[in-house]
Design a protein around this nucleic acid. Structure first.
Lengths: 204, 204
DNA sequence: TCGGGTAGGTGTACGGCATACGCCTAAAGT
DNA sequence: ACTTTAGGCGTATGCCGTACACCTACCCGA
């Protein structure tokens, strides 16, 4: 009976993501999102209960960009796992400021559920069952979340590394050498390297 | 020549940590910390440039609780690595709301540096050198940060798992089974399990 | 064609946040 | 005892999320 809605939750999420990508997570206020949409601030509350819900929509929007389809079943299951994790990394890595939100709002994301289903399916193919499967899934999830945050907040190749490399060699001898080594490693190589460690452990 | 300071940065950090442990990270405002100390809000700014710096002090306070001493050199190097990671987990796990701050403020924490020095020293003992050492260190750090956040925000054994276990079995067959398995795993076992995967990979 | 009721959009207001600025004054060094 | 210096504080500004009340465009039934 009343007038029709002129927006959708999807549009809110898209506008919020635009703001986050442009101004960072701290720049994402209800006011900023409303301005992005050309609406009044309070209009948003016709579509969303509160800020938390909007954050959840943003997370779902981002995660929906991860292809949940099982990779080529002809490939070794370890490679298939790697494919799934790298898909997640590529998608989340394109919106690094969203990663902390992902940790909070991952419950109830059907996209994440679909990704997880494919992952545990691959694990089952590899004969990983019961508690070992639970632990493998959580391990991969933890690694992705943690690695993306660290990478975004302090890339290995960046200035931070120079500071460490310049440490007093008598107190931090190995760290100084390690930091020097770190300068030659690009973030992608680093992520894959850490993932390879985990996958080797899963493969057992 | 002027009157003496009545507080120290350490007291600020301790008060802030008290507030965080009691009211959560969102409850830690400059006002709340000042009240905790029985001082005016603006008095804090005589000790600290801004909120960011106070957060950094909290992180350093927490991380200073991690024993950086090398574990018994007689133990296998893999066990020594496990000891170091578990020390970090126990300390950070006692203040889960601080974990996100740790990710942001880990640069410049000398306690973290000392912990890292010991860890890379153990890796060197194990013959892990160059890029492999860099990747192993970052892998462990990423896992700890990620796992602690996921554990705090959604324990495997909690209600979330029940929701997943109740999923439509035709669309999420493996996840439903995996969630059912997950109910029997306590967080400590889960953390150690994921860590074991990583350590196996490092051990090669 | 028209009238009523529903719900979309908005403006205002409130309490809380970080913090800039300027005042008052305790107290250390002379 | 007097001067000087910085510690502590009150106030104010401009953000934030959001409660609330209002107006009105619009769909539906007549």
């Amino acid at each position: 009976m009343p007038r029709r809605r002129s927006l959708s939750q999807a549009q809110l999420a898209a506008a919020a993501l635009t703001v986050i990508d442009r101004d960072g997570l701290a720049g994402m206020s209800m006011r900023a999102v409303a301005k992005e949409l050309g609406m009044s601030t309070m209009a948003l509350y016709r579509y969303v209960e509160d800020r938390r819900e909007l954050e959840g929509l943003v997370v779902e929007l981002v995660l929906s960009g991860v292809d949940p389809a099982p990779p080529d079943p002809a490939a070794p299951w370890r490679e298939r796992l790697e494919t799934m994790v790298l898909r997640m990394r590529d998608t989340l890595g394109a919106h690094p400021e969203v990663v902390p939100l992902t940790a909070v709002h991952r419950h109830g994301s059907v996209s994440l559920l679909r990704w997880s289903e494919t992952v545990v399916g691959i694990l089952a193919d590899g004969g990983v069952e019961g508690g070992r499967r639970v632990i493998a899934l959580r391990g991969m999830t933890s690694y992705v979340i943690g690695a993306l945050q660290l990478e975004h907040l302090g890339p290995l190749a960046g200035e931070g590394t120079d500071v460490i490399a310049a440490l007093p060699k008598d107190e931090f001898p190995v760290m100084a050498a390690t930091a020097a080594d770190a300068r030659g490693i690009d973030p992608d190589e680093e992520f894959r390297g850490g993932l390879a460690l985990l996958l080797s452990g899963i493969e057992g």
